[in-house]
């Protein structure tokens, strides 16, 4: 299609599309004022999460308990995408790895400044600590495996910023990261199967519920948080590794 024709067709179509979308949006309830007579799914969850699940963060209750099966799928979407990126960026037989771009001859090496190095090294341990805190407190306050996992994954990124690629590879070797990601993903299924065997329903809670507001509350949700944290942290570090390897390790053009 010629660009101008395409733009014309697009603008007309999108005007119609936006028109029907807005027409539909105006049929929704007024913002912030849902019909008080019909309790939604969310209202039910809000009323059940503390009395029945001992989970004080309702969003975590939805994610890992009421709709835990969705989250299993979600976790594997991440797993499949990371595997897919690793598969696509794999080294082919006709490519050969050379030294990283910053070690090539005739290239000026720019080291990170002392301020950057100091700051990022200083931030590594707080990042790890904060990540672990967020992962383990998902059932109490906002947070959980996904958020905490991303924070944990920022620690190796800080190492990369402070030093260079090689120290990152030393701290987080590829095999370790791959194993962590797979164990995290598989662990979720194992927890689900444990529920199946103990209570006859996949992903059914099989641990004591604890006291609402405690770190050890919510039963198997706490365990799921740990596996998801492991999977997310592993997945993001693996993504970082494969992208950096693709860009930084020189290959002969085909």
């Amino acid at each position: 299609m010629r660009p101008l024709v395409r733009l014309g067709l697009f603008l007309v179509s999108t005007a119609v599309f936006a028109g029907i979308f807005v027409a539909a949006l105006f049929d929704l309830h007024p913002l912030g004022h849902a019909d008080p007579l019909s309790a939604t799914y969310g209202d039910l969850v809000n009323s059940l999460t503390v009395p029945e699940r001992h989970i004080t963060d309702a969003v975590t209750a939805v994610n890992f308990d009421f709709r835990g099966f969705d989250t299993l799928g979600e976790e594997f979407i991440m797993f499949a995408s990371v595997l897919g990126a690793a598969l696509l960026l794999r080294k082919h037989a006709d490519e050969s790895a050379g030294p990283p771009i910053d070690k090539q001859q005739g290239r000026q090496i720019t080291l990170a400044s002392d301020a950057v190095r100091l700051l990022s090294v200083a931030l590594v341990s707080p990042a790890v600590l904060f990540g672990i805190y967020v992962v383990t407190h998902g059932q109490v306050t906002p947070g959980g495996g996904f958020q905490g996992g991303v924070i944990l994954a920022s620690a190796p990124l800080l190492i990369y910023v402070s030093g260079e690629f090689h120290s990152l590879r030393r701290v987080a070797p590829r095999w370790l990261v791959e194993a962590a990601e797979s164990i995290g993903a598989g662990g979720y299924v194992v927890i689900g199967a444990a529920g199946l065997l103990s209570a006859n329903a996949f992903l059914h809670n099989f641990l004591p519920l604890g006291r609402p507001g405690d770190v050890f509350s919510g039963g198997s949700v706490a365990l799921i948080d740990l596996t998801v944290g492991l999977e997310v942290a592993g997945g993001f570090i693996l993504l970082l590794l494969v992208f950096l390897e693709e860009v930084l390790v020189l290959r002969d053009p085909i």
Binding site: F76, L83, E178, A179, A185, G186, V189, L196, N200, F202
Partner: peptide, 24 residues
Amino acid sequence: MLTPPIPVALPLLVAALLAALNRL
């Protein structure tokens, strides 16, 4: 009833296992 989750859970578990043992 044990069967309904199997067509989803079993392949996912084996997929994770295969990826974990990628090198071995």
